[in-house]
Design a protein around this nucleic acid. Sequence first.
DNA 1: ATCTAAAAATAAACACCGTTTAGTAATTTT
DNA 2: AAAATTACTAAACGGTGTTTATTTTTAGAT
Lengths: 212, 212
Amino acid sequence: MGVKERKERDKVEMRDKILQSAQHLFLAKGFDQISIRNIAEAIEYSPATIYLYFKDKNEIIHALHLDGFRLLVRHFEPLVKFTDPFERLIEMGNAYIKFATNNPGVYELLFVRTEPMKHITNRLDEEWKEGDRAFDVLFQTVSQCQQSGHFKGLDTQNLSMMIWSFIHGLCSLGISNHITHVKEARDKKLVVDAVMASTYQTFQTVMERLKA
Amino acid sequence: MGVKERKERDKVEMRDKILQSAQHLFLAKGFDQISIRNIAEAIEYSPATIYLYFKDKNEIIHALHLDGFRLLVRHFEPLVKFTDPFERLIEMGNAYIKFATNNPGVYELLFVRTEPMKHITNRLDEEWKEGDRAFDVLFQTVSQCQQSGHFKGLDTQNLSMMIWSFIHGLCSLGISNHITHVKEARDKKLVVDAVMASTYQTFQTVMERLKA
DNA sequence: ATCTAAAAATAAACACCGTTTAGTAATTTT
DNA sequence: AAAATTACTAAACGGTGTTTATTTTTAGAT
């Protein structure tokens, strides 16, 4: 009488298959190439079948969104080895930048595109958990910095938000090719990275001065 | 023998008409509703006609892009009344945030979407002038702050870039609904604005501490 | 084994999209 | 008035997300 159970497994399997194909298309050919029809062809089913497993395309994109967050969190894991909270904070920025420049498409999905957020909107508490957790890693580190006597008189939440805003702004400008105003833009990819690096270096200096 | 002249005027007029319709569609119904077919219907011509005046859709979007920059620059104009460079810097941030939150679509067009930048890519020098000029306003102000003795030992270009990154990050997160991790998100619009305001307040404090 | 009801998959259509091509209509030049 | 140029468009191509009606497959009961 394990029919029901098997069917449920099959359903999950199919969902996974769809998501895998979507992710593959996304990573191989970019956001625009995630189309229901492309996914359908990849899994060798008709486009309509996909709608038996997902409400609409946004739900698929949102699922990819979650996967992206897991990848980001994985970038943060090695940070535990930095015992000094300030050092960890700085390295967290480097990890974040590395994640963004190595996975620009994923980054765009997580923090630039509005589609995945639209899908959430209502039931925020359940769905934005991953975002909360990632932000909390930052929050905790900032908090520990303050316990060590840094950043006196600044609100932890606001300061964390400020740091995130800066780092996100830098990554977002870099990825969207908006840093090209730098005159010596010969080999672009390299120059953008260089600008991001020296800008972050400056930020680092600023944060160090703020220690006192 | 003013036939040629009249025809040239007509051509310009038609271009304007197309752009006006595009802008109207954009502001009224959002980025996605800028379609060649919608524009064509609005100006009561066939879709194919539009291609006699613009190479492709990207060229139209890029033209809107330029208009958006003019709007941004207009937001900066009242800043001349602040004679103290640091005060002007802070107010510039307020003006930028105001521009972004009042014109989220336009902001997205200018600094988030990659389409308009794609269109530029090659001939950067001619086309990214507006961007250069806007950045220069910031650069000059930061420079004047340093001449007044602030921000000692920091590279002007890097510091300007850092400030822009922060402000852009804040606006970008706000507009794309990525600030919703704040728990007390009841009336969203309001809360997002509040978070942006207090984050910017913190940034302001940080910059003030950096004066010395 | 057969019939039936439920579940799964799909073909085909709808309403869009950007863009191109080939042909028509209007205008200017000769 | 005829020829040449310019302005315009109908129709098609290949794409998109999504829905509806229909068919195929599967499961359970007789």
